[in-house]
């Protein structure tokens, strides 16, 4: 199959970059960045994945069709995350008067379900 042939130096450079980024991932894990812990780890991981896709998988040198298919995979990933988040992000919006809430919602100590378990059970009958 005729394809782009990159010089070996490119592969070594990318490999080096991946190793450095791996070290960064491990290093960052020992530092508490507070709210930034997750974004930083994700940023490093996404950078690594991008390098692999562009250079090791030759997408940088591929046809527009191949690039389109790769982008489509990310579009579907977006659907997976985005549509799942429609559930998670809106779970806390609604609490019924009887105290039922969505699955996984943090139930506070003063929440009616916690406060009156017996009464709720009786009402159910």
């Amino acid at each position: 199959m005729a394809g782009h042939i990159s010089p070996k130096s490119t592969y070594y450079a990318i490999f080096g970059a991946l190793m450095v980024l791996t070290a960064v991932t491990v290093g960052v894990a020992f530092i508490n960045l507070g709210a930034l812990n997750f974004p930083v780890a994700m940023a490093v991981a996404v950078t690594k994945a991008t390098l692999v896709i562009l250079f090791f998988m030759h997408v940088k040198y591929s046809s527009k069709l191949t690039k389109f298919i790769v982008l489509m995979a990310f579009f579907f990933l977006f659907i997976l995350f985005g549509m799942t988040l429609t559930d998670y992000l809106s779970r806390g919006w609604y609490a019924s008067p009887r105290g039922s809430v969505g699955a996984g919602t943090q139930v506070e100590a003063e929440h009616p379900v916690r406060q009156q378990p017996a009464a709720t059970a009786e009402q159910a009958h």
Partner: peptide, 18 residues
Amino acid sequence: GFLVWAHHIFVAGISPYS
């Protein structure tokens, strides 16, 4: 077909808005 999956789990406690 990729946008409809949660109809399998309407009663699993997902958000009513979702």
